[in-house]
Design a protein around this nucleic acid. Structure first.
Lengths: 191, 191
DNA sequence: GCAAGTCGGTCAACAGCGGTTGACCGGCGG
DNA sequence: CCGCCGGTCAACCGCTGTTGACCGACTTGC
């Protein structure tokens, strides 16, 4: 089969596999996603998917890393950070768009995925956030991550009604306020 | 959990299966927990576990319901609510103790478990919390749930270092403060 | 110009697990 | 004697990640 048509976009089959994996992992859990599903999406054989990435866990890691903050989430002005985090979490995904967040919130549980995420949480979220916001402790940065993760899960995985209903415009400032409160919170003993 | 029935029924094989299920689901994910594991714990045949509860999902639901807030989490004084929620989430489990929380945080993902949890979140957390704390919106109550879920997951499932390290005594007041901030937060437009 | 080797990819199979099912069985009350 | 209850046993069927053998095309070396 000649991939001439979509060559420009996806070029190598490996890249297309990766993108299919990203799409799958962003919509289902790690365990619910089979290598055969991904292979079928791309139109290749299962064996090749496996041989291409070594193992399912490594494919998951690659997919997650490939989605990490494509748009420089932490690049904006420091004082708008809380707002942009809130916006990112509540953002509606349209079409084929894939957020790292979607992958993360669907694959808690499953020890393999958790291992991957523990690494990336520290390197790709806590570190940039504390660096961006001087004086912010790793603990409070992780608490921000916890809030965002919880909101994402309850909203998009569990489907909690109060977080899904219409007014994202109402939810967003509230969430931003809470994030700000967490980051600003030095009102207890310094941590 | 029914306090008296618990001891009395400990003889009943069905009750022992339920308890074994609670233990398993509190330590592994829904998907990672097999009916055969549970059956082996109790010392009965897999088929009986299935026939006893109808399906794996129903067993999960029964196990989760049986662990729900055994000690009346919302019964304390209303103003200490944030603190007691924080304490509950960060509490160290010793021995065979099983919190509903442990089951919940291990089994996000998996659609079957999520379905169960969506029901119970509304009925068993949001409703009591808003009732206990007059004027609290369902949205903010759910945000509290999100924070607690996120903290539990990052701490106990993913194993994020900043939330696990020693000082629970330092983390707890910070968490309580954030919870309080969420519940108190009417500083934005009323929601 | 031809052999050798690598790259991209297929195919079939393995080995093991998962929940679920239906047939069966011993004891016990009526 | 019948029938129900608690429980076992074996099997089914579908799925999983993973493996090794193989293959065609293209590049490289001589």
């Amino acid at each position: 089969m000649k991939p001439a048509a979509d060559a420009a976009l996806s070029g190598s089959t490996r890249a297309r596999i990766l993108q299919a994996a990203m799409r799958r992992f962003a919509r289902q859990s790690y365990e619910a996603t089979g290598l055969r599903d991904i292979a079928a999406d791309v139109g290749v054989n299962v064996a090749y998917v496996h041989r291409c990435f070594g193992s399912k866990e490594r494919l998951f890691r690659a997919a997650l890393e490939a989605t990490l903050w494509p748009d420089g989430l932490f690049d904006g002005p420091g004082d708008g950070l809380a707002a942009s985090l809130a916006r990112e979490v509540l953002r509606q995904r349209d079409g084929g768009e894939i957020r790292a967040f979607d992958i993360v919130i669907h694959s808690f549980s499953s020890p393999e995925a958790a291992r991957v995420m523990a690494d990336l949480l520290a390197e790709e979220f806590v570190a940039p956030l504390t660096e961006r916001r001087g004086g912010l402790s790793a603990r409070r940065a992780t608490l921000v991550a916890a809030l965002l993760a919880g909101v994402g899960i309850l909203r998009d995985v569990v489907g909690a009604a109060p977080l899904r209903e219409a007014g994202a415009g109402e939810l967003e400032p509230a969430l931003a306020g809470i994030i700000e409160a967490i980051m600003a919170g030095g009102d207890e003993a310094a941590d």
